[in-house]
Simulated scan of single mutants.
Amino acid sequence: MRSNKNQKSAMDTSSQQNIIAHGTKIVGDIESKGPFRIDGAIEGNVKTEGKVVIGKSGSVVGTLVAVNVDIEGKFSGKLHLKGTLSLKSSAQIDGEVQVNKLAVEPGATFNATCTMGAVKTLANDGGEKVKDSKGQSA
């Protein structure tokens, strides 16, 4: 018989961090409720309800949908964030960015089209809905 403590930890994976280690390459799509730290390489789409940190040796090529993202490494593709994108001085970004807030340290490379304040989310029918920064449909 399991105790309630074991059942809770087995069910609550949203607070556990997923780590893609340096030297690891993943090709494909990833979806998770928990946060990510990426020090390896991902070619594909990443969707999470948590925070994503792309370390200095990390790279993502594809679409990244998350709440908040801190980037020290490389990103190329589309970023859709409900919260804040924080670019450290070593960050290199290419593509399309849609965020609520943006913080850029001196030295970061930001070659992207950027939309702030309105966050597009995918509707159930495959179409897109536009929501403002407070989550209200526009």
Rank of each mutant, 00 (worst) to 15 (best):
M1E: 04
R2Y: 11
R2V: 13
R2L: 09
S3K: 14
N4C: 02
K5N: 02
M11Q: 09
D12V: 14
T13H: 06
S14C: 06
S15D: 03
S15E: 08
N18K: 06
I19G: 00
A21E: 13
A21Q: 13
H22F: 14
T24C: 09
T24V: 15
K25E: 15
V27I: 15
V27Y: 03
I30P: 02
E31S: 15
K33C: 07
K33S: 12
R37W: 03
I38D: 01
A41F: 07
G44H: 03
V46T: 11
T48Q: 02
G50K: 15
V52R: 04
V53R: 07
I54C: 05
G55D: 02
S59G: 08
V61L: 10
G62E: 05
T63M: 08
L64Y: 06
L64A: 11
L64M: 14
V65M: 14
V65F: 06
N68R: 08
V69Y: 03
D70K: 08
I71R: 01
E72W: 11
E72P: 00
G73S: 05
G73T: 12
K74H: 09
K74G: 03
K74W: 01
F75K: 10
F75Q: 06
G77D: 05
G77A: 11
L81T: 07
G83M: 04
G83C: 06
T84P: 02
L85K: 01
L85I: 02
S86Q: 11
L87D: 00
K88L: 08
K88R: 06
S90N: 05
Q92A: 08
E96F: 12
V97T: 08
Q98K: 05
N100P: 01
N100F: 06
L102I: 00
L102K: 00
A103L: 13
A103I: 15
V104F: 00
E105F: 00
A108L: 01
A108S: 10
T109C: 00
N111S: 05
A112Y: 03
A112F: 04
A112D: 02
T113Q: 10
T113S: 12
C114N: 01
C114R: 02
A118H: 13
A118I: 12
V119C: 03
G126A: 03
G127Y: 04
G127C: 01
K129T: 14
K131M: 08
K131A: 03
D132Q: 07
D132S: 10
D132M: 10
Q136D: 02
